[in-house]
Structure formats: structure tokens, C-alpha cells
């Protein structure tokens, strides 16, 4: 050891892999685009045979001659065979109103028409706007996430500090997650409705029901992460349990906390969407999904799905950013 003090610089960066001469930005962008292109290719490949029968039926109704001409024969025929026999109608499969599988371009157009376009018209939060429905789902998600996270942490603190709670709570927490949320969601809605609780809270509670578990499991692990030596050290100082918690356990659990919150947030969103389904499908992304399936509006279903995915990505991204900033300030970033 020549110098005892390490350079004051930021943590060492990993060396660039040999042979990689790309600009840093390209290094991350290229793989993303490769994956996107692969998904799009797979999507369009699946789309054509899935939609070909409908295209041929419409063409036949319009008076064209297709092969085979008989609808019943077409029903029993192999879809890929139909595509190969009627290549002229491939383009039609991409342009249906109610396709079995809409193309990414159709989903994108629907997404834009129900979000950006409506904002430009000044109707951004009208009931036909996807932004309005996303907002409804978001508010239930965030409230449910808050309840679930606080509850999850409270349970974890209890489990870590009390042997009785450790043995009494953990089995129930695990059991709660084995019940399908689809089965229990309508009951929560109905029971709460009967005691006069309606609106946001029932959905948020379903959200919280899914969200608390990863937070509890992660935080139990995190609060137990200080090693025996660290706990011994505090013992020699005569630290109280509260001091041990605030000065050691809580800061040590931060990496686990953020990871748990990411999972909890995704779970909370699923909970909110599921919670919207048994209410009669009036408002929210779950309602859009359900209404779309009632009326065979596949484009609407897919656009609602994408909206939910985007929402989840944004929410988890926010937690990720908080994680980076917090752990960096704590000197715990990897």
C-alpha cells in the first residue's frame, strides 16, 4: 500500500468492455431498439394469420373471390395456409376495425387519439380520454401504495422486534397472497359498499392488499441485515431498541426498502386495475379493459394495457430515481 488515502474521486467505474468502441448513449439505445424491433416483427407475424379469416370474410361480402370461397371451409382451414393462398389480402389484416389482434400502429393511433389529441383539443380530462381513466387508476394506486407501504413497514417492524409477531403474522401474510385477488376483490368492494365506503378507498384497499406483502418481506430482510457485530457494538454502547432501530436498522434497510417499493408499486397498480373491474366498469383503466372486452374493442383493450404498462414504468422509474439519489447521498450506491 503506497498511499493510505484513496483518490477522492467518484467510485471506480467499470472499465469499458474490450472491443466496445460505441458512444455510451448508443450502447444503451441499440439493444433497446433491437428488442423493440424483435417484438414488432413477432407481433406483425402473429397478426396476419390471426386476422386473415375476418379479412377474407369481408372481402367475400364485398364481392371478391377468395380461396377457398366457402366460409365453413375457411373456418376449418389452416390460418397460415389461408395467408399463403390469399396474399392480396395481407394488407387488409392490418386495417380492421375490430381485429382479433390489432397492430402496434393501430394501438399507437388509438393511444394518441385518446390522450395527446384530446389534450390538444382541450378535452384532456373528458370521460372519453384515456388520461382521465389513467388518472382514476393512478389515484387509487398511489393511495393503495401508501397504505400498503406504511402497513407493510409497520408489520416488518413488528416481526423483527417481536418473536410472537414473527410467528403469528408471517404465515397469515403468506396465506393472504395465495388467495387470488380476482376472487377477493369483489367481496372487498361489496362488503365496504354495504357499510357505506365507496369510491376511491375500496380500490385502494385492494391495491394495498397486494402491495404490502413485498414491502413486508423486503423490509424484514432489510431490518435484519445488520450483522451481529454491528448489533454487538450498539449493545456495548447501551443503545435502546429505538436507538438501534433509527441509527442502524432503518438506514441499513434502505436498499431493500426501495427494491420492495418497486415491486409494491407494480403490485399496487395491478390491484387498482383489478379493483375497477367488479364495480361495473365505469372509470379507470380496468374499466376500459372490461368495456373493451364487452364490445369486442380490441384496440381499446390494447391501448388501455399499454397505458397501464406506461403508468407502471413511470411510477417504478420515479422510485428508481429516488433510490439512486438517496443511496448515493447515503454512500450506499453500488
Amino acid at each position: 500500500m503506497t498511499s493510505e488515502l484513496r483518490p477522492d474521486a467518484a467510485p471506480a467505474r467499470h472499465p469499458t468492455p474490450a472491443g466496445s468502441r460505441m458512444l455510451p448513449i448508443l450502447r444503451s439505445v441499440v439493444p433497446v431498439f433491437v428488442v423493440l424491433a424483435a417484438i414488432a416483427a413477432l407481433w406483425y407475424t402473429a397478426l396476419v394469420p390471426m386476422n386473415i379469416r375476418e379479412s377474407l370474410t369481408q372481402a367475400e361480402r364485398a364481392g371478391a373471390v377468395v380461396d377457398p370461397p366457402n366460409a365453413i371451409e375457411r373456418r376449418d382451414a389452416n390460418a397460415i395456409g389461408l395467408v399463403l393462398k390469399n396474399p392480396a389480402y395481407i394488407a387488409d389484416t392490418l386495417r380492421q376495425d375490430r381485429p382479433r389482434l390489432p397492430g402496434p400502429d393501430q394501438v399507437w393511433r388509438e393511444l394518441w387519439a385518446t390522450t395527446g389529441a384530446m389534450v390538444l383539443e382541450g378535452k384532456g380530462l373528458s370521460k372519453r380520454s384515456l388520461l382521465y381513466h389513467a388518472w382514476v387508476t393512478l389515484s387509487a394506486t398511489v393511495l393503495g401504495f401508501a397504505i400498503g407501504t406504511v402497513g407493510g413497514i409497520a408489520l416488518a417492524v413488528g416481526i423483527v422486534h417481536s418473536r410472537v409477531m414473527n410467528m403469528a403474522i408471517m404465515p397469515w401474510a403468506i396465506a393472504s397472497q395465495t388467495i387470488p385477488i380476482l376472487a377477493i376483490a369483489p367481496m372487498i368492494i361489496v362488503v365496504l359498499n354495504s357499510i357505506g365506503v365507496t369510491g376511491l378507498l375500496p380500490k385502494a384497499l385492494i391495491s394495498a392488499y397486494l402491495c404490502f406483502f413485498p414491502v413486508t418481506v423486503g423490509m424484514v430482510k432489510g431490518l435484519r441485515s445488520p450483522d451481529a457485530m454491528q448489533l454487538d457494538l450498539l449493545h456495548t454502547y447501551g443503545a435502546s431498541r429505538a436507538q438501534t432501530f433509527w441509527k442502524l436498522r432503518w438506514p441499513s434497510s434502505m436498499p431493500y426498502f426501495f427494491t420492495s417499493m418497486k415491486i409494491g408499486m407494480a403490485a399496487a397498480l395491478v390491484g387498482a386495475i383489478v379493483g375497477e373491474m367488479p364495480t361495473g366498469a365505469v372509470r379507470g383503466l380496468g374499466a376500459r379493459l372490461l368495456a373493451g372486452s364487452y364490445y369486442g374493442q380490441t384496440v381499446q383493450i390494447w391501448s388501455a394495457l399499454f397505458a397501464a404498462a406506461l403508468l407502471a414504468a413511470v411510477l417504478v422509474g420515479i422510485i428508481g430515481a429516488l433510490q439512486t439519489v438517496t443511496l448515493k447521498r447515503m454512500g450506499m450506491s453500488q
Binding site: 457485530m229 454491528q230 454487538d232 457494538l233 449493545h235 456495548t236 447501551g238 442502524l248 438506514p251 454512500g331
Partner: peptide, 19 residues
């Protein structure tokens, strides 16, 4: 003696809090 803060303990690992 521990409660009277009679001793300081040094472990094999420094065990400094990174934060």
C-alpha cells in the same frame, strides 16, 4: 460496567456506517 461506559470495544472489522 457496560452501563457505566467502562470500556470501548473494537472489532475485527471497522464496522463504520457507510452512510
Amino acid at each position: 460496567a457496560r452501563r457505566a461506559r467502562a470500556y470501548g470495544y473494537v472489532f475485527q472489522a471497522a464496522g463504520l456506517y457507510p452512510w
